[in-house]
Design a protein around this nucleic acid. Structure first.
Lengths: 110, 110
DNA sequence: TTCGTAGTTCGCAAAATTACGAACAATAAT
DNA sequence: ATTATTGTTCGTAATTTTGCGAACTACGAA
């Protein structure tokens, strides 16, 4: 009776990677920083913080939204963006747990 | 006298994005998890944890090394990999600070 | 109706990422 | 000298990401 090794990635690992990937661009970090520290958060203000075209900003916002880290709401004629608090806290917890793993151990190399 | 707006990204934002990007793939999260929880950490063992070819594993390890999250040491004929503790803690602190930003505020949307 | 504002979506190009097998290097064992 | 072990590097292909301008949508105002 052989042990069958699951070669797929775990759900937690996929989820953490997803959050990390969404944060893996300086423009998106800047957006998140901005949204995390402001309450007024229209597209135009975000665009103004960044050195890139509005089409590109829109794309980055879409990726952050798809990853669940932010949410957008139409407030005609503007669009208001905010941090998605639930997922923000989820991400926070995922990262915290992840990094804490190492601290429980004595390292082999350093 | 005009205010000149710096359109570049801040160093902290670049650094955090760099860490996040390195973590932005389930295989690399799996590697980091493994290294964070084990002391014996040869290439072969890591490869064994993953559903991908060794060439690809080697590539992922290189990216993690380039991002500073791990380090490798030749122990002929094997290669021993470990978490880079200094940068690990640096990353931990960057992420913690980043996520804490939001918690200091009352959100506009949620 | 026509115009202006605020963003999104489209189409495209360039670059980066992901993945693999094959070839390679370095050493140890036969 | 040949072979086996352990990983890395090379070459390549497929996909994704990043970025832009132009076109488009939706709405309100003139």
């Amino acid at each position: 009776m052989d042990v069958i090794k699951n070669k797929e990635y775990g759900l937690d690992q996929e989820q953490l990677a997803r959050f990390a990937k969404a944060m893996g661009h300086p423009a998106r970090i800047t957006i998140l920083n901005y949204l995390a520290s402001m309450d007024s958060c229209y597209f135009g203000e975000i665009h103004n913080e960044l050195p890139i075209a509005k089409a590109t900003v829109s794309q980055h916002l879409k990726e952050l939204k798809d990853a669940g880290l932010i949410q957008g709401e139409i407030e005609t004629p503007k669009v208001k963006y905010c941090i998605n608090r639930d997922n923000w806290e989820k991400a926070q917890s995922y990262f915290a747990t992840f990094f804490a793993l190492k601290n429980e151990k004595i390292s082999c190399c350093n």
